[in-house]
Structures are given as C-alpha cells and as structure tokens.
C-alpha cells in the first residue's frame, strides 16, 4: 500500500461518482454519485495525511469532509422532497427551471 496506489483508488472513486452524478436522472441516484465523489476525496485526504504528514491537526480536515457529506445528504433529501411534492416526480430533468 503506497500513497500513489491509494490516491489512484480515490481518483477512480471520484471519476465513477462524477459519471453517476452526470448521467443519473433520479435525484437520489445523483446524490449517490456525489457521495462517491466525496468518499474519494475523504480517502485521498486520509492517504495524504498518513503518508506525508501524520500530525493530529490533519485529521480534523477529514472530519470537515465527513461533515460536508452529511450536509450534502440532508439537503439533497430535502430538495428531493420539495421537487417530489411540487412536480410529482423525483427526476432531475423535471426540475431544470428555477421558477415554480
């Protein structure tokens, strides 16, 4: 296990998540793609921390990434709920305009 190997895995996760976030129509599936991307960032952060500078302070950055993941999920579900209530569907294509 080297820094480059872990970073390659995280890059693969990020790219797969990007593909999912761009292609999926269902809002929940788009969120899954974004989750995968953030997970890749988390993994890269952990690898950089351990292999380059394993000081205690660096771990707090990972906590911030975890918090970002939580916020993304909560707001994503809330927006999906609003879209579903107002449009009767949970497809991103049915919510391309800003006006209600």
């Amino acid at each position: 296990m080297t820094l480059q190997l872990v970073l390659l895995v995280s890059a693969a996760l990020f790219s797969v998540g990007l593909y999912g976030a761009l292609t999926q129509q269902v809002v929940v599936m788009v969120m899954m793609g974004i989750e995968l991307m953030i997970n890749g960032v988390l993994l890269a952060g952990g690898a950089l921390w351990w292999f380059l500078s394993p000081t205690p302070d660096g771990q707090t950055v990972l906590l911030v990434i975890l918090a970002a993941m939580t916020v993304e999920m909560a707001m994503g579900f809330a927006v999906a709920t609003v879209v579903h209530r107002s449009r009767g569907s949970d497809l991103s294509d049915s919510a391309t305009d800003l006006a209600g």
Binding site: V6, V9, L42, L43, G46, W49, P54, L62, L63, L66
Partner: peptide, 11 residues
Amino acid sequence: IIVMLHLDYIG
C-alpha cells in the same frame, strides 16, 4: 482502507 491508514476513528 481508511482504518488501514491508522485512522481508526474516522474509518
């Protein structure tokens, strides 16, 4: 993998 990077709590 994160646990293997010794980040037990975060993992």
